[in-house]
Every structure is written in structure tokens, then in C-alpha cells.
Design a binder for these strands. Sequence first.
DNA 1: TTAACTGCCTGTAGCTGCTACAGGGTCAAG
DNA 2: CTTGACCCTGTAGCAGCTACAGGCAGTTAA
Lengths: 145, 145
Amino acid sequence: MRIGELAKLSNCDVETVRFYEREGLLDRPAREANGYRQYSDEHLTQLNFIRHCRSLGIGLTEVRILRRFQSTPDLACDEINQLIDKQIARIHEQTESLRQLERQLHALRDTCHANQKTGECGIMRTLEQAAEGEGCACHPEEKTR
Amino acid sequence: MRIGELAKLSNCDVETVRFYEREGLLDRPAREANGYRQYSDEHLTQLNFIRHCRSLGIGLTEVRILRRFQSTPDLACDEINQLIDKQIARIHEQTESLRQLERQLHALRDTCHANQKTGECGIMRTLEQAAEGEGCACHPEEKTR
DNA sequence: TTAACTGCCTGTAGCTGCTACAGGGTCAAG
DNA sequence: CTTGACCCTGTAGCAGCTACAGGCAGTTAA
């Protein structure tokens, strides 16, 4: 199949497929006489593998590592487990810091509900006070430090 | 004060300060005879404002907008509230998708605990099956579609 | 016949928010 | 006179794509 079909089947962009090839994640396909890329089912499987990993937030570097493991099925899978564990830890950290962000933004939002002039807007004032080092609603824990 | 002191006071990198200036977020400072940047307290406040917004995940484009609002205190603050609301929505979405990711990764992790060969590793097999379109532990909802 | 259209090609630049050089000047202390 | 801590400009790099520009290939419609 050609690149357009492959891309559609694995639900990604044509440019992305070429990008993965350039990055050495996807095997180079054969070429037709006119230079068009000619893909096999094996390529489709590879691409699906990459996209699936990506959908799990696994970075291209890690995907490259996993692809290398695929070709050596006799190695211990210890490293794979570690890789996934690291990924879980990373995502967990991100979730936590986003949760905190959400709380902070809500606190900031609560300082202004009425439609006022910018000069009296609670949000704007809070942000400006914070800039002056006076402490703010959104980062309350820093007050007590 | 010079750039190094300013950067230290607002707890960011010297290069970042210059970057904000290039981006038009921070007012251009006066220069000493030798070309060194000469900052005032006003600059420090501006920089703190930017950093505080950034710590709330507010993008540079939005910070630019907020900075413009600062200079027109008589405008209605409606837009500011909307801007923060949009920010909250964005962060909330991100949190949700990360939470889902975390669940998926845990499901994947649960497919292999023992130290085995890569060829038998549950994680690797799960990923490979998914690539073949057989459904996977990490994206269970897609099975039933 | 020719024009339009779709799909493919290569190569390069852009996005965000910095960060990290290279290659150079300034100034005080030892 | 050299070392070291600053400062300067300008450019390239990071991730993971995305979006052109400029051009060829192959099919179809007027």
C-alpha cells in the first residue's frame, strides 16, 4: 500500500509517517518505479505499535528502545517494566502538578466574579499584588513560609 | 540593577529575561555606557507578574494580553475572567486525559510483573497485540466498540 | 489536447518556552 | 597580566509533530 492508505489505516498524518521514517522508528519501505513508498502489513503493525505507545504518552526515545527489544525476544524484560514504571511515575507527577494548578486557578478566579473595570478586577489585582510580592490567593502556602 | 540581579530576584534565568524582552513581554531597559541593561523596580514587578502567570500555566500569548489590560484599567474585566476560565478549562482537560493515561499505564503494567524474557513479557505482548488490532488491556473501552 | 485534481516526492521552516552554546567585551581583584 | 565573574549578540537546539514551497505522477473531465 502507499503512504496515504497506511496513514489512514493507522489514523495518523502522512507527514507523521515520513517523520517516523526519518527518525528511524519505522523501517524504510521499498519504492515503486516512480519513487513512491510501498508499504507492507508489517509496516502497518510497526506504525500501530508506535502510535499505540504514543497514545500512552511514551516518548519517541522510549519507543525506539521498545522497538529494539522487539528484535531480541530472549533478553530479560526487566528493563521494559522499568521503562513503563518510569513512565507511570512521570505521568503521576504531571497529574499532581496540574491538579495543583487547577486549584490555584480556581482560587484566582474566585477573586472576581462581577463584571468590573479592569482596574478593579479581583483577578488582575491579585496578579499584580503577587508581582509586588504581597502574597496571593492562588499561592496561599507561600504566605506562611 | 543589572540583569543578573534582576534574574536572581525573580528567580529565573538571565537568558529567560532577555528572551522575554525579545518577545516584547518585558519593557526594554535603559543601557549603561558599556551596553549593559539597567533595570528598575518597575521591571522587577513586570517580570514577577510574568513569572507568576507562567507558574499558573498561562501561556505567553495570554500574558501579553493581560499586560495590555494593565495599561487600560477602565476597560471591562470581562475578558480577563474569560481568559482565566479558558485556562481553567484547558488545565482541567489536561488533568483528565493524564488521569486516564495513568489508568491505562497501570493496566499495561499489570500484564507483567515477573522478570521474564522479552518474548514472553506481558507488557511487550500487550503492546504488540494492540499493534495487530487485537485490543489491549490499556485501552479496554475500544474492545466494545 | 489540455486542464484540473489528487496524491506523492524532497527539503525546510514553524510551533512553545525556554536553554545552551559560540565568540566576544568589561571590569575588579590578586 | 591574568583570572574570574559578569555582560553582550546571535544562533541553534529540545519534542513531536505540522505546514508549507516547489515539483513530479497518474487519472479523469471538458
